[in-house]
Design a protein around this nucleic acid. Structure first.
Lengths: 144, 144
DNA sequence: AACACTAATGCAACAAAGTTGCAATGTCGG
DNA sequence: CCGACATTGCAACTTTGTTGCATTAGTGTT
């Protein structure tokens, strides 16, 4: 799995210049089982010298390059997660679901399973379906 | 269908005091086939005397009382829609889907159909599922 | 190892959506 | 019609995220 590589190699592979802030942000993402917000990441890095704008731009660069994807939480803040977590091959936003724990409010990116069925029609009443996003609410393993 | 009643009756039925702003906001929602943002509603009322804070509080009151529900759009702004649109019985957030047009970006609240399958398991890998929200992307009838 | 090209950073200022406090006003049951 | 209580309107504020720009740093080439 891609997380066996070190952050520098991963950044290079995704066409991103290797800088100190990017390594630290990527490291935090690699070590998280859940999607993280900008403020989560700032908190986990826990260094007053880190610049918030640089972290915003880092996350946007990661997402543009396809290293991460973003998903809005229930408070409508962006959360970021690596694409290659929970699967061996790169995922796209179309082929995984998001599990939102109603207790801890954390969001897990889930691989496709029977919990996440695709629509079985491609068109209905003039509405043409091209993709779907499944947001599954419940309680995560840590919360019970 | 509930939209045959007038706005005053509807407000009363949902335990909301009948005021001029509430009637105007409800009227805009009744006449829209899609979910509307705060700024959409302000624009449709088109009266410089309308107060934005009052409209925010009106929409929160509608949602608290179960007259409307809110859904975040792709820009993570809240959109509001009547619960009783597109169905005869009141819907909950659990049993309908949202169709997001990738061209006009409008969001339609859809009744349950085969486009919107429920997860066929209630638990997987320690994740207990209690509800799901289906966000379906595609092109709406107006855009092709 | 040094160079130069280009991208990334750090700082301040800004933007948009939405909330809060509070005095003034309006609604509605009795 | 009155009084209790909810709603309104205004200003100030909060939070999240973006933009502009001068400075700094990474990277491929020589």
């Amino acid at each position: 799995m891609a997380t066996k590589e070190n952050p520098g190699e991963i950044l290079h592979k995704y066409g991103l210049k290797v800088t100190a802030t990017r390594i630290r942000v990527l490291d935090v993402l690699i070590n998280s089982p859940v999607a993280l917000s900008h403020s989560d990441i700032i908190g986990l890095i826990d260094d007053p010298m880190i610049d918030k704008v640089t972290v915003y731009r880092t996350l946007n660069a990661f997402t543009t390059q396809g290293l991460t994807h973003k998903v809005a939480n229930e408070d409508r803040n962006w959360l970021y997660a690596l694409y290659f977590h929970n699967s061996n091959q790169p995922a796209t936003s179309d082929d995984h679901a998001h599990f939102i724990c109603r207790q801890c409010e954390r969001i897990y990116c889930m691989p496709i399973t029977s919990m996440n069925p695709k629509p079985d029609v491609r068109e209905i009443g003039g509405f043409v379906i091209t993709s779907h996003e499944h947001r599954i609410h419940g309680v995560c393993p840590e919360c019970h």
